[in-house]
Design a protein around this nucleic acid. Structure first.
Lengths: 161, 161
DNA sequence: TTATTTAGGTCAGCCATATTGACTTAATTA
DNA sequence: TAATTAAGTCAATATGGCTGACCTAAATAA
């Protein structure tokens, strides 16, 4: 049976090969987030601030609730980070049409920081994938997409309609 | 000049497309680590314990120093996590030939937990990539590899020689 | 052989990010 | 009018990092 499997199963489905992928994910993700972390540190911010700035910057306006469903953290967790960003004028809050909701948007200061942080990561990826051909890049994107849980695929699709 | 760029630059190097990759990385990595987290929680362990168990399990034996260079955390940080795993008999410590060093290895209990945790992630990846063809998978791996900083590429190569 | 470096450990304090639970207010909707 | 929803807040707790200071024992270099 083991021999049969060896004949029928492609090499890349071997446990050893898949463990390599696990490690690739670990190392690559860690190095990917390391760049912005240095800038954030100078401002006494952390990765959580980056995520908030990123997703607030992505839409013209976003409510607290929408932000929470993207980030999947509790509102108590978001609260601390978000209030710091509001107090230091990176994010502007205004009331929505539904008076219960609030709309968040980046200020000019916020956009500048967002740009500074994202540029690092965008350049990093651009410099890598420019050396690859489209099939490789498509494989990369498609497999990453499939690694997302179905519920969250919807969220990804929504914000990238 | 902008028009010229549009003619010469492939679509996948557009900022918008690269931002999608940033988000794919965020969502996929988060969902990828979510599985083991649930099991770890029952044991009052966290992701840090998982990483230690994973990399101790990978080699027949590993020293503290080697583990530290892989994980890139301080020895104070490692200490707490590692001592819990030793105390609860997931990891066994013995003295190396160089009497200053210590060799870490998984116990049977440790191997069982390692297997339980890794199986979740291995199956997840296997179920995804079995639906892809080799060029896609190669693109995925190659790009992930290039996202690792050069110093750490060496580490990845070493542990996968 | 003495001096230096290396591997490992420890104590103390601090910070960031997350959690749960309980409770409140104001606005919208059934 | 009652129920639900969006947002906020207080308090306690856990995890996973960090810095700095300091120690021991063993190996290696001068």
């Amino acid at each position: 049976m083991a021999d049969l499997n060896n004949l029928l199963t492609p090499l890349y489905l071997n446990e050893k090969e898949i463990r390599k992928i696990i490690e690739l994910l670990f190392f690559s993700y860690r190095d990917f987030t390391a760049g912005p972390d240095k800038i954030l540190e100078k401002l006494s911010f952390g990765r959580a601030h980056h995520r908030v700035i990123y997703f607030v910057g992505k839409q013209k306006k976003i409510t607290i609730k929408e932000l929470l469903t993207i980030l999947q953290i509790t509102k108590q967790s978001l609260s601390r980070v978000l209030n710091q960003l509001i107090k230091e004028k990176y994010i502007l809050v205004s009331s929505g049409n539904d008076k219960r909701t609030k709309n968040l948007a980046l200020t000019k200061k916020g956009m500048e920081l967002e740009n500074q942080l994202s540029t690092i990561q965008i350049n990093k990826i651009r410099n890598i994938i420019k050396n690859f051909k489209e099939p490789d890049i498509n494989g990369f994107k498609k497999i990453l997409y499939e690694m997302i849980e179905d519920v969250n695929k919807n969220k990804f699709d929504e914000i990238n309609n």
